[in-house]
Simulated scan of single mutants.
Amino acid sequence: MDEPSQPTPPTPVYVLAAHPNLRESRVNRRLQEAARSLPGVDLNDLYTSSADYEFDVPREQARCEAAQLLVLLHPIQWYSMPALMKLWFDEVLTFGWAYGSGTALRGKDLWLVASTGGSEASYHPQDYNRYFFDAFLPPYEQTAALCGLRFLPPMVLFGAHRASEQDIAGHVAVFRERLASYPHWPEMDELADCPTCEVPAFDRPLGRGA
């Protein structure tokens, strides 16, 4: 008699979340709760775990190594990520581990899940944000490329401050479904591999100063 097939374990995911005022959040708080509810998802709320601006770098690197999908979950602030997440990048993605001679992240995926206060229409050359939203993505895309990560199409909720309850609930449901079904997304086969970025060792001195 055939043995019953065992369920396939979920692909490990590391969600790096940053919201300076999570209690007041209408969107990110619920996205974090959805991520926490899923098996195989490791979530780190930076403004709770690293409120002193200190990181356990070896532990953070181990969490990244254990995951196949790295998720950046945050509101857009000044056209970028919150300050504590930027500090995490500075401290954790070290030369010789994440890029350069280091290949710890190569072959993994990076997914940006962001929310904005401004509407989608405001990200337009004729409106106050002056650029389409995609114009603010190159720092994310190139960081991914430098580390050998494939940058997946971002998931963005525009106008989060005024979004209806129905819109927020739908956004959270899609996010949860995407995490649960990764890597079996319909568009995966159409995505290009990550470009190769060779960084000469002499471009990165041993010290911190330039």
Results as ranks from 00 to 15, higher is better:
residue 196 T to Q: 15
residue 187 E to N: 10
residue 133 F to R: 08
residue 154 P to E: 04
residue 10 P to F: 09
residue 68 Q to R: 15
residue 147 C to M: 14
residue 69 L to I: 09
residue 102 G to N: 03
residue 155 M to R: 12
residue 102 G to H: 04
residue 46 L to W: 04
residue 90 D to F: 05
residue 30 R to S: 06
residue 59 R to K: 12
residue 26 R to F: 05
residue 5 S to Q: 07
residue 163 A to G: 14
residue 139 P to C: 07
residue 136 F to V: 11
residue 121 A to N: 09
residue 36 R to T: 10
residue 64 C to P: 11
residue 155 M to G: 02
residue 81 M to D: 01
residue 92 V to H: 02
residue 102 G to D: 05
residue 210 A to V: 12
residue 55 F to P: 00
residue 148 G to A: 11
residue 20 P to N: 06
residue 87 L to G: 00
residue 100 G to Q: 03
residue 127 D to M: 13
residue 140 Y to H: 14
residue 8 T to V: 14
residue 4 P to T: 13
residue 186 P to H: 06
residue 96 G to T: 03
residue 190 E to I: 09
residue 195 P to T: 12
residue 198 E to S: 10
residue 42 D to A: 14
residue 64 C to R: 07
residue 105 L to C: 05
residue 91 E to I: 01
residue 137 L to G: 05
residue 168 I to W: 09
residue 201 A to P: 01
residue 98 A to T: 04
residue 175 F to I: 07
residue 15 V to L: 09
residue 144 A to I: 08
residue 203 D to Q: 13
residue 108 K to G: 10
residue 177 E to P: 06
residue 86 K to I: 01
residue 179 L to A: 06
residue 5 S to P: 09
residue 17 A to F: 00
residue 48 T to C: 00
residue 169 A to G: 15
residue 181 S to I: 08
residue 133 F to S: 11
residue 6 Q to W: 06
residue 66 A to T: 14
residue 202 F to C: 11
residue 12 P to Y: 09
residue 92 V to Y: 02
residue 74 H to V: 00
residue 153 P to L: 14
residue 35 A to Q: 06
residue 69 L to W: 13
residue 35 A to S: 12
residue 56 D to V: 02
residue 86 K to H: 04
residue 158 F to N: 07
residue 10 P to Q: 11
residue 54 E to L: 14
residue 25 S to P: 07
residue 68 Q to D: 15
residue 134 D to R: 13
residue 134 D to F: 05
residue 179 L to F: 10
